[in-house]
């Protein structure tokens, strides 16, 4: 049985896009979490008493028991380095002039992914204290980028 073949003169590809544009609300908990960053320069979490778990970023509910979490706690601006990576390439695959250090910083029982700054690679160790560096109050928009980066604490 012969199979149909592609006409040798066929265009090989067709190009197009997915025009997906989004507007996201931050939600019930996100509103509180980002307002605290923007207005107070604070990082807040939410604490479930039953499960003894502090969610950072703050969550409206506890994923372990589904109860509403209503204890909002200031977890401070200093966390611990849980793990990190060094990025040598950008989104487009091009070599970065200045490699970027991205880390998971533990806060409460959760934490944030963010960039590290004011730090040399050879200073980094797991468990090191890292402190959030905020934009000045007037410049903060209510965004994760209101924190410029984390730097070694103290």
């Amino acid at each position: 049985m012969t199979l149909l073949e592609r006409d040798p003169k066929s265009p090989l590809t067709w190009s197009g896009n997915l025009p997906v544009t989004s507007r996201y609300t931050f939600g019930l908990a996100g509103e509180k979490f980002f307002r605290a960053i923007k207005d107070e320069g604070k990082i807040i979490g939410s604490y479930c008493k039953k499960c003894d778990h502090t969610y950072v970023p703050a969550s409206q509910f506890c994923e372990k028991c589904l109860a509403e979490v209503s204890d909002w706690v200031d977890v401070g601006t200093i966390g611990e380095l849980h793990t990190f990576t060094v990025l040598y390439e950008g989104y487009d695959g091009a070599r970065l002039v200045q490699p970027e250090i991205v880390a998971f910083i533990s806060l409460g029982d959760g934490g944030l992914i963010h960039r590290l700054g004011e730090i040399n690679l050879d200073e980094i160790y797991f468990g090191m204290p890292l402190e959030a560096v905020f934009l000045p109050e007037g410049q903060r928009q209510g965004s994760i980028l209101d924190i410029r980066y984390f730097k070694p604490a103290g």
Binding site: T25, F26, G27, A29, E31, Q60, F61, L66
Partner: peptide
Amino acid sequence: AQETPKELSW
């Protein structure tokens, strides 16, 4: 809705 998708689900 103000709620995030996961908050709506919850």
